[in-house]
Design a protein around this nucleic acid. Structure first.
Lengths: 223, 223
DNA sequence: CGGCATCCGGGAAGATACTG
DNA sequence: CAGTATCTTCCCGGATGCCG
């Protein structure tokens, strides 16, 4: 029972060092990633973080709360459920997540075949979106990924992603890996549909265009 | 002697997760920070990383080399010394360092009174430089911080920092904390000179202007 | 089921001493 | 100066159990 556990300090005034004290512990930044699209419950966080153990998640949530990065809130009755939500400053960590992700995507060792949470996929859209390719597209797409729903809107060369459902030209249902294959891989929608990995309800052409809007950075030269 | 130690994986295709596998280990990102201004020797890295132990530094350098983030080089004779140098892709981690530092500088818990390495100070200049305040300044300053020398050039609303010495209007000699006080604090140059914390050789007015070019971000609201 | 405490094993980090 | 060897400490991850 050491409440006063001070996370091992770097004793360094550098902001980067302080960032590591705030979000450098294992899993911490990925917890923030899972919270980037709104409040989440304990169990939902576990689903998005394959391999994290409950006690570590509990501990990280407590530390992130103490740091002012997230708050725990109780939803009003009758849904009196506890949820975890980023503070405004916590949401600003999105830039860190995106820049780190974009940099690491150039790693020769990056393995995109591993599992991906729904929040990760949506964050990858925000990260890899290429505004120049989207100047002449204005559409809304619904994504259904298991229990997760997202609305993705492209307009004026900008991309918006949020949880929920909305008026959309098309609704896509599938796993994150199917969407990865469609957007970042060279797998055609037809093939994914034939495999049953993906279902498209609505305007197919919107989806065809959508899959062209994102580009992974080129790989760094291996040693 | 387990050379094949695989760093604990997140089993996550997300680029951010991979970034944590690459630079998420303790000290790793700070080692990259120390290397951002050019190759460094083992002992020089230790000086810039107060508190790191030699075995951890050895291990990190090996891992970062395996990941393709840095290379070890032997300088040509007669100075046949081994140095560590970032790869081109390793240098690109500067963005991660800067964004993380800028974000963490808003933390209510950030303590700028702790020690700061010379590389950290120079990286903070790159991070906190405000181009709009520098439109009408074109100058070169030499910084002497212990054994470290840097040339800082401001021109066309841009800032350049590199190791070494050059033709400069002014040479500043002092500790990192003195420069922090002058640039980010409200301590006047006169006071710092009187305390012997800082010495100015050359155009004082250039220094006066220089100290106004940088702005720390505002603090996030405490919980 | 959600959340948190506790115990335990393995491994990484810290400190120190030692060697070429 | 540049690391290596060793020992201790502490964090991480897994399992279990309690309590609402």
């Amino acid at each position: 029972m050491k409440l006063d556990k001070i996370t091992r300090s770097y004793d360094d005034a550098c902001g980067t060092a302080h960032a590591l004290e705030l979000i450098g512990d294992r899993w911490a930044l990925l917890i923030a990633r899972e919270l980037m699209f709104g409040p989440r419950r304990f169990g939902e966080l576990r689903v998005g973080l394959p391999g994290i153990s409950a006690n570590v998640l509990t501990q990280r949530l407590a530390e992130l709360e103490r740091s002012g990065i997230l708050m725990r809130r109780k939803l009003p009755p009758p849904a009196s459920v506890q949820v975890y939500e980023l503070t405004p400053w916590g949401y600003e960590a999105e830039e860190v997540i995106k820049i780190a992700g974009r940099w690491a995507a150039r790693s020769p060792a990056h393995d995109p075949t591993r599992p991906l949470s729904a929040a990760s996929l949506m964050m990858s859209f925000r990260t890899m979106f290429d505004a120049e390719r989207a100047t002449d597209l204005a559409s809304t797409l619904n994504f259904v990924i298991g229990a997760d729903r997202f609305v993705v809107t492209v307009a004026d060369g900008r991309l918006a992603v949020e949880r929920g459902e909305g008026e959309a030209e098309v609704t896509l249902t599938g796993s994150t890996s199917a969407f990865v294959a469609a957007v970042y891989g060279d797998v055609s929608l037809r093939v994914l549909e034939a495999e049953g990995a993906l279902a498209i309800a609505g305007e197919r052409s919107v989806v065809e265009q959508f899959t062209t809007l994102f580009a992974l950075p080129s790989k760094a030269a291996p040693v």
